[in-house]
């Protein structure tokens, strides 16, 4: 996880944080009825942005979507709930690039350009999981603050994010990835391998994140619908272990391998030229 701090050394990454955040906020704001109006499965295309910037810009995408969501709140809905939105959106973009590497062998082409069935399946799985985690974090927080009932918030955030992420994400990545690569703006190209954590027990980390994400949502749903602990401290405590699993898993997933892979590819190209 150290890359989320070391990235700030690079001016380009700082700029990518700002641009990702600004894009996210600029698309969010016109669609801002309110993030969680029940039953409104309105089209909110902005929700695809975290997945895209996460896979392309790595840690800069994670900060970018966290800040972008906060700025969205700056245009009318800044409240204590915004903290949950910040952290939730951070993970919404962090997990895609963290998890991505866990599904591809070292010698396998793992560019997220959606040019194979496998990449598509991996992407969809990751997008759904990241949506679960994001929603788990935000609804956990608002439940803790006791400002919204847990279950409706949870379901709406998962649905909104996952639908847009799954429908729009693959098309956008297919169209945008080659251009970003051409301009040398992939996070794997800007950052140095030693600035990124190496993975430790990657598969275990992967499993932990899944258990944490799915577990948090399922537990929350059960507790919420059965009325065992509808709000407040009860749900807060029950979900905390799962959210901790997600964080621990993210630490184990690393990311240095992706940076090294791109470096090798560039070197190979260089020697051919």
């Amino acid at each position: 996880m150290k890359e989320i701090f070391t990235m700030w050394r690079h001016t380009q990454m700082v700029v990518l944080v700002a641009l990702s955040a600004a894009i996210y906020a600029a698309i969010l704001i016109p669609f801002k009825g309110f993030p969680i109006i029940p039953g409104a499965v309105e089209i909110r295309p902005a929700n695809v942005i975290p997945f895209v910037v996460g896979l392309l810009f790595g840690p800069a995408g994670a900060w970018g979507s966290a800040i972008g969501n906060l700025i969205g709140d700056f245009f009318g809905t800044l409240s204590p709930g915004s903290i949950g939105g910040f952290v939730g959106n951070f993970f919404l973009a962090l997990l895609p690039y963290k998890l991505w590497g866990a599904y591809f062998r070292r010698d396998e082409n793992s560019e997220p350009n959606m040019d194979s069935g496998k990449k598509l399946v991996v992407y969809i799985a990751i997008a759904v999981l990241a949506s679960l985690v994001c929603s788990g974090i935000i609804s956990w927080w608002v439940a803790l603050l006791q400002i919204f009932p847990f279950v409706p918030v949870l379901i709406l955030i998962v649905v909104n994010n996952a639908i847009m992420g799954v429908i729009l994400g693959p098309i956008l990545l297919r169209l945008i990835y080659p251009r970003v690569k051409r301009w040398g703006l992939l996070w794997t190209e800007i950052m140095e391998p030693e600035e990124v954590s190496a993975s430790r027990l990657q598969s275990t980390g992967n499993i932990l994140v899944w258990v944490g994400g799915v577990g948090a949502v399922v537990t929350g749903l059960i507790l919420g619908t059965t009325g065992a602990a509808p709000a407040g401290l009860g749900i807060g405590l029950a979900l905390l272990p799962f959210l901790i699993l997600v964080v621990v898993g993210s630490f184990m997933l690393g990311g240095r391998e992706q940076v090294e892979a791109l470096e090798e590819e560039m070197a190979a190209e260089e020697s051919r030229a």
Partner: peptide, 23 residues
């Protein structure tokens, strides 16, 4: 939903493209 692609791609691409000049 898919009709947003022709809007999102140019917004994204023209904005991100300025990263280098900006930096």
């Amino acid at each position: 939903t898919r009709k947003y692609v022709p809007l999102l791609v140019p917004v994204f691409v023209t904005t991100i493209r300025s990263t280098n000049v900006f930096s």
